[in-house]
């Protein structure tokens, strides 16, 4: 999966979790929490959706790596290698 696909995978998950948020204008460098209404329950959902859709496991101690789109890409690049984007 390319970096762009990883971003799309995360945006796709956020769009499902927070259907009222505008996911079109997320700044990848800025913390997701600072751009939209996401709390710790929602981060739990991002992690569970990653597991459900891509079989990727993120231990609680690594939640911090999901702070922004850019940091998600860094953290997930190896874990998502070879996976197909689910829409």
């Amino acid at each position: 999966m390319t970096d762009e696909h990883i971003k799309q995978a995360i945006i796709g998950i956020i769009a499902d979790i927070a259907p009222d948020e505008d996911t079109g204008s997320i700044d990848p460098a800025v913390r997701l929490r600072d751009q939209m209404d996401l709390d710790s329950m929602d981060f739990l959902d991002i992690v569970m959706e990653l597991r459900k859709r891509y079989g990727v496991q993120v231990p609680d101690t690594d939640y911090q790596h999901l702070a922004s789109l850019d940091s998600c890409v860094e953290y997930l690049r190896d874990k998502m290698a070879g996976k197909q984007l689910v829409s």
Partner: peptide
Amino acid sequence: LSRLLKQLRIRW
């Protein structure tokens, strides 16, 4: 309410 909607995937 916003928390509940997100958790259940219900649009406002």
